[in-house]
Design a protein around this nucleic acid. Structure first.
Lengths: 338, 338
DNA sequence: CTGAAAGCGCTAACAA
DNA sequence: TTGTTAGCGCTTTCAG
């Protein structure tokens, strides 16, 4: 049996409560006593029991991370590791632990979240995605449980939720305008799953830019695919089969762009000579494609870091109100545009 | 205040222990009572408190995941997301949660592991790496705490630890032999950090194959780099600066290979015409390079899945003894060799 | 500045 | 088959 607070108390000739106060470094304990108690702790090799503490103070000092259904798809994308890296850093700084959701389907995930919340397993939750008909957020809202969303709420009053996001609308708009400045008029859009809010925002930005330039929006230039790798390749096939092909492509994600580049190479379409490409994320390996890709850096790490900061803040001060944080993005010009 | 087991007990006119038994679905409770208790639980919206339960039964039903120091480096490599995916799947099936280490330095991580163990925060630990002077494993061993290593123990009696690994020695040997069969004699080796056991095994396999073929081992053909992206590129510079260049390269990691391919392309060295390349892992995007890379699939997902299975087994039966599981590998021939 | 004791919510031995 | 009760290890009033 592990050594408990009582053992320490006995050894130091004090009451358990005193030991507890020493752990908390209470100012109402004399330095002499502290010394003595600490010595006893060392000698016995005392370590506080986490569950007992959590039970007593009703807080676990851990943050729940909820990823989109099926980590299968999620984890293929370097976005998640990178955002978790940002989360991890801040969490560590503040002494918080990380608890990971493992469910594969939407129902499983909702069930897990309920357990986290009802079971007091975590103090707050980080939602790493925002999808259209999400059930998790409404639940959290209803429970008035601290959470922060990475992304943007959809179909929910924005003033009720704290979130950190990029201005994806603007990013897509800028990127489209950039391509138009380079002389392109037939610009294709290869987007991700339309259930995700980021896809919607990208598309709106794209359409707005075209509208502003009086270029008609062509449905056949807009393609959506969920899978990162095959998705990119299939999309290229669709778009290159058109009689009038686009001369430039906006791709939802860097990994998808790898697929796009590969398929284009197989078709002997040269990038950027015959086709310009811009994508989003600036994931680490995106500088290793050939040609290197022009992409929008969305500062994924910062998204995670800021969201965690915001969440911890919310946990410690539940009345602090909701915050919206927009992480700036930046177009990284490389070799895939002309 | 949340509804507790006592509230349910009152409502159902039974004792708290009865409610507890209903939760555990004990066979010693009559169906009628179960019915009544369940009804009460529903009506009150009862959900068990996780920490109280953990405290009472001294088990948390959660697994700690320990990653190499600085997730910074770790998470750049798709290996980790993929292995976590395997872990996640098995853990979910068995009703286990996942707790993630967040420390950045070796010391921080050791400290975290101590907290997990002493604090009773997790029931077992999964070590996602094996490095040479690791302090975590000796600690776990000394504490007799359930853990499973992904990789191979080093400087530690193998019979004392359960681990799941690939036969990295053999994989590297095979790969070298494969290149020799294709006619190569000057084969370079671009390895990872020598602190990691996998690197050591790869190198030994490589050297053994050369030795068997009576080809002298040239030091200048062996290069090590830690960073995945720049590493590959720098290695290529080193190796291509030699008066007598290798005609084939064995690269430690697919992501590194992206860097290698890029640098080679910049140098106008054609793959596979002027240089053949084989690497390890068969990460998802490795089929998206151009040319697509020949690589050894090490079944990362399975590593995670099997390790978790083994760990859970060990948790439930501490006396079950240590297991060694070797996950098979497979050479995936694509376009980077000639 | 320190101690006694109640309680966090659940489980499990022992009784009945 | 069910109830009583004593913990699990820690925190926190309330006394002193």
């Amino acid at each position: 049996m592990a050594v408990t607070i009582k053992d320490v108390a006995k050894r130091a000739n004090v009451a358990p409560s005193t030991v507890s106060r020493v752990i908390a470094n209470s100012s109402r304990i004399s330095d002499k006593t502290k010394e003595r108690v600490r010595k006893a702790m060392d000698e016995l090799g005392y370590h506080p029991n986490f569950n007992a503490r959590s039970l007593a103070i009703k807080s676990t000092k851990t943050i729940g991370i909820v990823m989109p259904n099926s980590a299968k798809i999620a984890f293929q994308n370097p976005f998640f590791p990178e955002v978790i890296r940002g989360i991890s850093m801040k969490a560590y700084q503040e002494g918080y632990g990380l608890y990971l959701s493992t469910g594969q389907t939407e129902e499983e995930i909702l069930e897990e979240v309920k357990q986290m919340v009802y079971g007091g397993r975590v103090d707050g939750i980080l939602l790493l995605y925002s999808r259209v008909n999400d059930k998790v957020m409404p639940f959290l809202l209803e429970q008035n449980f601290p959470f922060v969303l990475i992304g943007r709420p959809y179909n929910i009053d924005e003033s009720r939720v704290s979130y950190v996001n990029n201005d994806n609308f603007k990013a897509a708009k800028t990127v489209t305008e950039y391509l138009m400045l380079l002389g392109h008029e037939r610009i294709g859009f290869i987007g991700g799953n339309l259930d995700y809010v980021v896809t919607i925002d990208h598309m709106k930005g794209y359409e707005q830019a075209l509208k502003n330039a009086n270029i008609p929006i062509r449905k056949e230039f807009i393609v959506h695919h969920e899978e990162l790798q095959e998705g990119g390749q299939e999309a290229v096939i669709e778009v290159m089969s058109l009689v009038e092909r686009p001369t430039a492509l906006i791709v939802a994600d860097d990994i998808m762009t790898f697929g796009v580049l590969k398929m284009l190479a197989d078709m002997n379409v040269e990038v950027p000579k015959d086709m310009s490409i811009v994508s989003f994320n600036n994931v680490m390996i995106s500088e290793l494609s050939s040609p290197t890709m022009t992409t929008v850096d969305i500062h994924i790490y910062d998204l995670g870091f800021e969201a965690t900061k915001c969440l911890i803040n919310k946990i410690s001060d539940p009345e602090c109100g909701e915050k919206k944080i927009i992480v700036p993005h930046k177009l990284i010009k490389r070799q895939s545009c002309k």
